[in-house]
Amino acid sequence: MSQREYHIVVLGSVGGVGKSCLTAQFVQNVWIESYDPTIEDSYRKLMEVDGRQVVLEILDTAGTEQFTAMRELYMKSGQGFLLVFSITSMSSLHELAELRDQIIRIKDDPRVPLVLVGNKSDLEEDRAVSRARAFAVSQGWGSPYYETSARRRANVDEVFKDLCRQIIRRDVELSRATDSDPREGRRRRDTQDRNRRRRSNRSREHRCVIL
């Protein structure tokens, strides 16, 4: 019963790149043709990764820019991130850089589990982002790049599986690091110190005074 639960957040800074279609294919094996802009949807799915059963909590988020105020919270709660763009739109890729920066800032971890996903690979004739270009971006981030098609269900499971593996690996690394590597663990300890300080701040001299 040592089922692990992982929180995955599907992000993209543009609406309509196929975040929901990708998620629906993965979770429910369905293809959705019509476009229904998301506000916030959540799913759960069991998956086997390298012989381990894991439970994935997947949060599908809004690409509509008016909802960006909610992102910070998602980033706090997520452990792994799919950053999705559409290969038919260059700007949908460009805008992801800022999202990634924000994730790293909030997670306080430059190696946060993350996959760059170029969706709509079936629309080869409308391609606006070359494979090489997107790959270079992902290299710069130190993250893998996949091209998917939610319509054809191509590479869908692979994307989620890769992210899961990363989460598991990072989990192990971090728990080791805090034990041995003083530098890795330092930041965390700083925060803890501060919390402790805050708690012990009070000097209550007359605790039983009745007002």
Binding site: G15, T64, Q66, S92
Partner: peptide, 16 residues
Amino acid sequence: YSSLLRANTPVSRMMT
């Protein structure tokens, strides 16, 4: 039409 006004474009930015 499904992608009309949906993607974040100058128009959507203007509307916001």
